[in-house]
Design a protein around this nucleic acid. Structure first.
Length: 344
DNA sequence: GCATATAACCGCCATG
DNA sequence: ACCATGGCGGTTATAT
């Protein structure tokens, strides 16, 4: 590492989530570590907080930090603003916000991890931009900052010079993307391998969100329709039929539905079918053909394509990763049998 | 993997 | 003038 190292400044504060810091910090450090000298990879990581000194994180672990005042404002290459779990009750931090806005004016990139997006939004950096945060806070972010174009699914979003990322571990995905942008695919891939991470993880963050049935509070005019759809996933749920059910013409239904729900009708249908199917894959050993029929995909082919499209894995891959039923966790002798069968 | 058919989506515009 | 509606046709995505 030499004088030309890129300074990566991590903005922390009381109750920051340590994982938001630790993930990217390790990624940048790993990049320094795995690169050969001639690859000229160099990051200098600095942790700053409003007052400097010891900062207690949300998990109780204590960090050391520099103070905002001690940092030469023109030296930051990349600013990362991290999140805290209690953003909805967090007090406004005027000094930090001012500092973030000032940094943003000179830093090459400004990024957020998890609920750090709220600080960027509050500092006015996200106006008119695409942004993401932890799936459980996307709605709140959109509500508080209508001028931000919040997207709920991506793991991270690049809207130069602002990058935002989803919850906690998504900060690692973000850091890998930053490293790839700086030093190329090969370096980023090696860092990912070092960290035992996907360079590009399959699927978006919505695969981790709570089921649609609880997520979509049924306070819209389509609540009854949604309830019916969920009970009748095998029925014909094409736009024409849904429109009839809702008592509108297809055109009006499309328009009104999309405006109210924030998602097109077919997207909701597919999301509902995906959700039911995922639960079935996780909780049962039913054959794919049966699941595809029961939850409205019809046949294995369509089910498979929907999974590849939405999650980037096949239904069987999904089952093997998430199923409680498919992997026996019984007595040791039973496990031995299982291991033997995997070795074939 | 390609060609064809169907569905979804959306801008546009006429209508009430 | 405004606004919700809904038919039409083109583009894109998905199914066959």
């Amino acid at each position: 590492m030499g004088r030309k190292d890129r300074a990566v400044v991590f903005a922390v504060f009381e109750n920051v989530r340590i994982l938001d810091l630790a993930g990217p910090l390790e990624a940048f450090t790993a990049a320094n570590w795995i690169a050969t000298p001639d690859e000229k990879v160099g990051y200098r990581c600095v942790i700053v907080s409003p007052e400097g000194g010891a900062v207690t994180t949300s998990s109780g672990a204590v960090l050391q930090s520099e103070s905002l005042a001690s940092i030469d404002i023109s030296t930051a290459d990349t600013l990362l603003v991290l999140g805290r779990p209690d953003i909805d009750v967090a007090p406004r931090q005027a000094a930090l916000l001012t500092w973030i806005a000032e940094q943003a004016a000179c830093a090459r990139r400004v990024c957020s991890v998890c609920t750090g997006a709220f600080l960027l939004a509050e500092a006015g950096l996200l106006a008119g931009r695409r942004a993401v945060t932890h799936w459980d806070y996307c709605a709140l972010l959109q509500q508080r900052y209508p001028e931000v174009r919040v997207e709920a699914d991506p793991i991270f979003i690049r809207d130069d010079p602002i990058w935002t990322s989803a919850g906690s571990t998504a900060g690692i995905d973000l850091a890998l993307a930053l490293i790839e942008d700086d030093f190329g695919h090969r370096i980023a891939m090696r860092v990912a391998r070092q960290l035992v991470m996907f360079l590009k993880r399959p699927g978006g963050q919505s695969q981790f969100s709570v089921p649609l049935s609880t997520q979509v509070a049924e306070d819209t005019e389509f609540g009854a329709l949604h309830a019916w759809m969920r009970e009748n996933l095998c029925d014909d749920l094409r736009v024409r039929q849904l429109a009839k059910k809702a008592g509108m013409s297809p055109r009006t239904f499309e328009r009104v539905y999309t405006a109210r729900v924030g998602r097109t009708p077919a997207k909701t249908v597919e999301a509902m079918r995906m959700e039911a199917t995922r639960l079935a894959l996780e909780d049962t050993k039913l054959p794919l053909k049966r699941i595809a029929r029961d939850y409205g995909f019809g046949d294995e082919q369509r089910l498979r394509r929907a999974f590849l499209r939405q999650l980037g894995v096949t239904p069987l891959d999904y089952r093997s990763r998430f199923s409680g039923a498919a992997i026996p966790r019984a007595a040791p002798e039973a496990r031995t049998v299982t291991i033997a069968s995997y070795q074939i």
